[in-house]
Amino acid sequence: MLKLNLQYFAADEKTEKATPKKRQDTRKKGQVPKSQDVNTGFLLLMVFGLLFLMGGSLKGTLTGMFEHTFQEYISWEVTENQVYDVFVESLLEISKVVVPIMGIAIVAGVTSNLLQVGVMFTGEPLKMDLKKIDPIQGAKKIFSARALVELVKSLLKITVVGTITFSIIWMNKETMMEVSQMSIDGALAFFGRTTILMGLASALALLLLSVLDYSYQKYDHEKNIRMSKKDIKDEHKNIEGDPQIKSKIKEKQRQMAASRMMSEVPEADVVITNPTHFAIAVKYDEEKFDAPYVVAKGVDFLALKIKEVAKAHEIVTVENRPLARALYQKSDIDQPIDEEFYKAVAEILAYVYRIQKKV
């Protein structure tokens, strides 16, 4: 008994790699290895890269808008039309700054997801699931090993980003102390360069950390989708079909085929028998085939049924043991007989036609 229990637990232990079908099913549910740090790092890199390349142009757009505001708008009369014009023109100028940043952010988000999971559309994560608001399950997640890993990751990211930003500020502390002596343009340029430098450095650091995080996410995903030997067997049964069910389906198909075959027996010209073990119903229709063809055949019980139907419909039965056995083995239903049987079958048909006074 103990040995059987041990075998059961061994079969149920998740030790096997996930099958392609298992991977496909989990992907349909939206369960794929993915690191949010890849998205964050790539997003920061793209946005601060845009600011590095277009910062001067964006700054010029904003300062130009403010100059126009204090030089032109301030002297306008406050009317409904004037307020509308100010709103529209200001919105257009702000859009010149916001749209490129929002656009590059969207491109970065889509690209980072495509790099990790490829093209995937699924609504499974959006479905209502009461387990997601289960306080017991929530507590288990909070105090789980995964939660501890996420905490360590967060602390590591805060430490790395904090160290980078502090180092950059520390390296520029002397210039920062002299900002009060600079012009507005000089101060803005300094803070802009420093901010972009901190952003790019932090983005690169997060991307390096994301490589480790993605490796962990992939390992954790593979661990979660592992299968037991029993799972693989069950999946194989579901794909191929349960042997008992397949056997029943085949039996049902045989019964249906036999039923269709029996319906063709009344149309036969002759039934050639063994006489007890084999029965082959043969018909000749020159419009269908150039040679006689088999409309039904059977052995033992099925042969008996064929002979009963033939008798009920007054179909001539001819006993020819070697011919009956050979036709059963070498002929297919609704197919012409082989050439080697032409002469023997022709003689039998001639005999039948004479009996029925067809010739």
Results as ranks from 00 to 15, higher is better:
144 S>I: 07
312 A>D: 15
257 A>Y: 12
340 E>Q: 09
307 K>F: 05
128 M>F: 10
34 K>M: 04
146 R>C: 04
104 I>S: 01
199 G>F: 10
31 Q>K: 05
326 A>L: 06
77 E>V: 03
351 Y>I: 11
220 D>N: 06
330 K>I: 11
127 K>Q: 06
213 D>P: 05
173 K>N: 10
77 E>Q: 05
72 E>I: 00
158 I>Y: 13
122 T>S: 08
97 V>K: 01
323 L>I: 12
46 M>E: 02
212 L>M: 08
68 H>Q: 03
254 R>S: 14
257 A>N: 06
134 D>G: 03
328 Y>K: 04
346 A>P: 01
231 D>P: 00
26 T>F: 02
65 M>L: 11
197 L>T: 11
347 E>M: 03
280 I>V: 04
169 I>Y: 13
333 I>Q: 06
35 S>W: 03
54 M>L: 09
7 Q>H: 15
165 T>Y: 10
159 T>Q: 12
106 I>N: 07
72 E>D: 08
280 I>T: 01
188 L>S: 09
59 K>H: 03
108 A>C: 07
131 K>W: 06
222 E>M: 00
321 R>Y: 14
324 A>T: 13
39 N>G: 07
165 T>A: 08
13 E>H: 13
133 I>A: 08
180 S>V: 11
254 R>H: 14
7 Q>I: 13
277 H>G: 12
243 P>Q: 07
205 A>G: 05
238 N>I: 02
110 V>G: 10
9 F>I: 15
158 I>S: 04
272 I>G: 02
348 I>V: 12
6 L>M: 15
328 Y>N: 12
5 N>W: 15
207 L>T: 09
101 I>C: 06
224 N>F: 13
233 K>H: 13
320 N>S: 15
324 A>Y: 10
161 V>N: 01
270 V>Q: 06
71 Q>Y: 06
100 P>M: 02
65 M>S: 09
63 T>V: 07
41 G>R: 01
222 E>F: 11
38 V>F: 04
177 M>R: 15
72 E>Q: 08
16 E>A: 06
49 G>Y: 03
143 F>L: 02
47 V>A: 00
68 H>A: 05
198 M>I: 13
217 Q>A: 02
192 G>Y: 01
297 K>L: 12
173 K>Q: 13
78 V>C: 06
247 S>L: 10
207 L>E: 12
185 D>W: 13
227 M>A: 14
219 Y>E: 06
175 T>V: 10
302 L>H: 06
163 T>A: 15
215 S>K: 08
146 R>N: 11
245 I>A: 09
296 A>T: 08
34 K>I: 02
79 T>V: 01
232 I>F: 09
109 G>D: 09
69 T>V: 05
158 I>R: 08
331 S>V: 00
197 L>A: 14
86 V>K: 11
